[in-house]
Design a protein around this nucleic acid. Sequence first.
DNA 1: TTGAAAGCGCTAACAT
DNA 2: ATGTTAGCGCTTTCAA
Lengths: 343, 343
Amino acid sequence: MAADKDRPTLASVARAAAVSHQTVSNVINAPHLVREQTRRRVEAVIEQTGFRPLKAAQTLRTRRSNLIAVMIPEPGKWHGELHNSFLHALTRRAQKSGYRVLLFTATDDDEEINAYDQLLSDYTLDAFVLTGTHSGDRRTSWLRRKHIPFVTFGRPWGSKSGHPWADVDGAYGERAATEHLLAAGRRRIAFLGWPDGSDVGDDRRQGWAQACEGAGLPPQPSVAMEDDLAQGRAACARLLDEPDPPSAFVCVSDTIALGAWTEITSRGLIPGRDAAVIGFDDSSAAAAVGLTSVAQPLDEVADACLVALGKLLSPGSSGSSGKRSSPHDRVLLKPRLVVRASG
Amino acid sequence: MAADKDRPTLASVARAAAVSHQTVSNVINAPHLVREQTRRRVEAVIEQTGFRPLKAAQTLRTRRSNLIAVMIPEPGKWHGELHNSFLHALTRRAQKSGYRVLLFTATDDDEEINAYDQLLSDYTLDAFVLTGTHSGDRRTSWLRRKHIPFVTFGRPWGSKSGHPWADVDGAYGERAATEHLLAAGRRRIAFLGWPDGSDVGDDRRQGWAQACEGAGLPPQPSVAMEDDLAQGRAACARLLDEPDPPSAFVCVSDTIALGAWTEITSRGLIPGRDAAVIGFDDSSAAAAVGLTSVAQPLDEVADACLVALGKLLSPGSSGSSGKRSSPHDRVLLKPRLVVRASG
DNA sequence: TTGAAAGCGCTAACAT
DNA sequence: ATGTTAGCGCTTTCAA
């Protein structure tokens, strides 16, 4: 490719600094073993030549690549904008810790596991970051069985698998949203959610339910639907046409909230005045139309993931009997309610 | 890490197949050099053991990693959703061709160049894919100077740099949008754009201007602003309050279009009936509110990028005198107008 | 504290 | 058509 004929190597640096290559290696990997004076001399040469060890050679020798892999899901499966922010945060943090992020795609869990296998043997990956965990997740059990280091963005729903994870407290978020509405005097608060059995959706709905109950409200209406704007709109319409229509809608996602928002608007009503709507994810669409929404602290999630990985990969945790993750490696982060015109 | 003590190697496969390791290597890299019978025997062992060559070793030897790097921009700089889709498409295509995508971040061109340098020497990258090209782009000149293979998503604005690129014809998109409005009988069509000097923005505005002119319309109003919803809304308001208000708004982005859409809606007018609005990027927000928008064919862009890279990286194009890119490596793709309620 | 020897797994060049 | 030799650049032993 490029002209890297004259790339500096450990050997060339050693020659220039009049030491053995081993000493150069030590300056980089174990500076405390090298005498101050020698170290400075070597460092000067490194600086001057711009020497950087070749990962391929290091990897071949040490079986560590400083690479972590993340799957990039099909657009639309996860909210793309959200995933992009997460990826960015993760990449930034990884870079700071000397890691790089490798991307791959897969369309289902089995394909993803297959990808792990290939990535592992091809690129000597150090670890994985998984998103979208769910009950009965085959990926986490596979990785555990193989003793591969990994962290998940998402709790180990329905399993007490002890792997490190970071997640956002969806129940807390919806509770906060609901309490915000209660404080504004709303007394009829519907929930527009996903069908039962989606772990994330159930968790979020619970937050709403808890807040309603805590306020001493009678049972409030709850409707389940796919994550689709039209369905959100239809559900909202149906509820508004009932005898005792809700004056507020807490939604499991921005997509559904936008549906409710659209229906309200199209009736000539004003979101936030005539009926409140709150979404989840704080997408740019929410910002665009003035939709109040629950924002996930993706930077913090990425941080937590990397802290956990750091522990997993630091000396002492290798070998097939990797140590159990400490409580600090299960991080539940609080989302933030971003109040806009709609609620 | 994992238990890869017993990982199959070239040597172990060779032993099992009773051939030299070189023959195994040939079976993988140059099958035509191996006798049918031998090949099948070796392949059987490979299949059975699940052998896969270690990239680290291959890279060390060949100076090729099968890795291509892409920068992931700060969320908000590029529309995150868009970039996520592009990344996904790129990763998929790359995977199919035996490449993997490595991510990195940078906050400006110089930092990005710095990242190239590190990535190159650390990970022996094969190529880069750049997004967001602009006039006087330091990145492309740096890469060219160093003879590093790369493709850009975005034309080499303002330079006739002969590197391969793929881009979306923004002028075409806005022309199509405008003509669509003209066909619907609109005769007063404003353009809400970015300030002069943004290559992409200027290109898009031109498409609108051409269509207006082509229809024999007198000069139509054009307003420039930052890519911000509030500014889009304000501009729309101002125009609507003029003596001869536009009946349609062609916008340089969905963000601005959403602003116009909001203003129209808040006046009790119906987008698409009382005043048309068309955005650019076909974001989920556009879909959410029923905003007509110009969709970029990101899959095709990713395809084109990988085709071009394939040529660049295939045997014959290495060395410091890499061959000039063929016309096929400058691909201008037509976007598609997605018609919704707003226009 | 430093140096020398060996080898990670693979491919390129050559010999057969 | 297949085998042999050498070495990519680094780190890990071990010796000095």
